[in-house]
Structures are given as structure tokens and as C-alpha cells.
Design a protein around this nucleic acid. Structure first.
Lengths: 147, 147
DNA sequence: CTTTACAAGTACGATATCTAACGATATGGT
DNA sequence: ACCATATCGTTAGATATCGTACTTGTAAAG
């Protein structure tokens, strides 16, 4: 009478995402949301500038969703958005100095929860879980593209 | 320069939840969303009737969120909502015959994707990942309550 | 050159989710 | 009995997300 194992895993993942998102957002400064932080983090880690479509693909959301997130980040002054000189349809997005500072503040704010998580669950166990999660993500991503 | 392991795990989980939710919702009949299905599934698996607060706790969402989901399910005729005779503040929620049928239809629709997932990733591997995920959920749930 | 097809970004409507606040009802201590 | 407190469900406002459709611009085909 139990749900299939794949369903149970997806269910657990859904709840974890929900709880984790709200936990982290509560500690984020500048009224940043998690998606907003993820965009800033992406810029700091990989450098350079990006188009909205590139960001959407990297972060696995739709163009429309990225438009919304970028508008909020721009309103806060954490990114700059300029027209692309080479392609009239496109834009170039880059992080600002304030955006970098906000990302640093955010990391500090999340550090304690992340450290507690590692301590409580074990860094090795978390590391061990990552390969399956990656496979799961790849599987789902292919499913999406395939149809 | 890499993100901490706990962050990488949470990040991967977030993307999996996103991709998985949209994949499953695309196959669901009766314009059901995943949260709506989860409520129906809960009733069929555990039987009986429930108050909105009980459902919210079981499914790990807030009361307000459950209010919204229940209103949509009731509009579709998949649940019945009646005042609690013993407590004037409360309500009793139960699944209807149409709700049961919709849940059965939904299971069929998801079955193929779930089976493919098990085949592709291995039932044993999925089973092996579940304990850590459960611990993670419990950790996050305690964090929420603790504040 | 046109015309057609494709790509980038946005607008809109729907659902889900949270927090905060509210009214109604219960419950417990005095 | 009364009043303070707690609980139940709802509503309001914010953000995220999706799918669809539209505008604008580029590229390819004729």
C-alpha cells in the first residue's frame, strides 16, 4: 500500500526544498529571496556578464521567471542590465559592486545553518548523496527536453 | 572557490523539485496540480477525515497554503468540507468518490515516469538515498519549530 | 529583396508558497 | 462567571513559477 520508491524520494525532496527555502530566506539580508541570491552567486562564481536566457538555462528556470527575478534585482541595484550592442533583441546582465556586497552578506548569514547541517548530517554522507541527486537532475532535465 | 557541500546538496534538491514538479504536473489529469494530488493521495493512503490543520502539518505547508489548496479541490468536487460539530472553529475534510477516481487516474498518469526513474537510477540506489533525505527533512523541520 | 522562420525578452493569468493580521471559538486560571 | 490566552480557518500582500501569447529583431529561404 506504500507509494513507489521514486515517488517517496520525490516527495521527500519536495518537502526539503520547501523547508530549506523558507529557512534560508529568513536569514537573508536586503530582503533577498533565494532565487535572487542564486543569481548573484552565479555571477560571483563564474564571473563576466550573461544574457537573461543564459542565466535561465544555467539556473533551470524559464525565460519569464528570469525576467521577473532580474527586474527585482535591478530595482535593488544589485545587477546592471544594458542592451546588447551586437544583437538588438538581447541584453547583457552583470553584477554590481552592491550586488557583490549583498552576496557576501548573504553567505555569512547562511553560513551558520549550512555548518549546522553539515555537522548534524555529516559532510561525508552529504557528499555521498550528491552523485545520485545529480543523476536524478540529469534524468529529469532530459525528460523535459525530450518532449 | 566551490560552494559548501550542504549548499550544493540543497541547490541540487531545489532544481530536482522544480523539474520534477513540472514534469509530473504536465501528465496529471483534471487540471490537478501536484499539491492537490498530494492531498488526495494522503486521504486515500491514510483514510478517514481530517481537519485543515492536520493536513497542513502532515504535508508540511502552512495553514494558509492548505486553505488555498482545499478551496481549489472543493471547487473541483474532489473533497467535501463540512463544519466540525464538536468545535465551532474547525472543519472536517474528506475525499469524495470523484476525488478517489481522480487520484487513481493521476497514479496511472505518473506511473510511467516513476517507473522510468526507477529503471534509470536503480530502485536500490533510490532506497539507499532515502534515509539521508529523511534526516535532512527532520533537521529542517526542527529548525523551523525551534524558532 | 521579400517572406518566412526562429530567437530574445516581456506581459498576463494561474497556482503555490510564505508571513502577518484578523475574527470566531475554546480553554484555563482566578 | 470572567478574562487572558491559545487555536482554527481565512484573507491580504508579496514573490516565484509555469505556460501562452506577443513584440521586436535576426537569419535563412525563395
Amino acid at each position: 500500500m506504500s507509494d513507489p520508491i521514486a515517488f517517496r524520494v520525490m516527495n521527500e525532496i519536495g518537502i526539503i526544498d520547501q523547508l530549506g527555502t523558507t529557512l534560508f530566506e529568513r536569514s537573508l539580508p536586503h530582503a533577498l529571496t533565494l532565487p535572487q541570491f542564486v543569481v548573484l552567486n552565479h555571477f560571483v562564481r563564474l564571473g563576466g556578464d550573461r544574457t537573461p536566457v543564459e542565466l535561465a538555462d544555467a539556473i533551470q528556470v524559464t525565460k519569464a521567471t528570469m525576467t521577473s527575478t532580474l527586474q527585482r534585482l535591478e530595482a535593488k541595484g544589485f545587477i546592471s542590465v544594458t542592451p546588447d550592442p551586437k544583437d538588438g533583441r538581447s541584453k547583457r546582465v552583470a553584477i554590481t559592486a552592491q550586488g557583490r556586497a549583498a552576496r557576501t552578506d548573504s553567505l555569512k548569514a547562511m553560513a551558520r545553518d549550512l555548518a549546522d547541517m553539515e555537522t548534524s548530517l555529516g559532510a561525508a554522507k552529504l557528499e555521498a548523496a550528491l552523485p545520485l541527486l545529480s543523476k536524478l537532475r540529469v534524468f529529469l532535465d532530459q525528460r523535459r527536453s525530450a518532449r
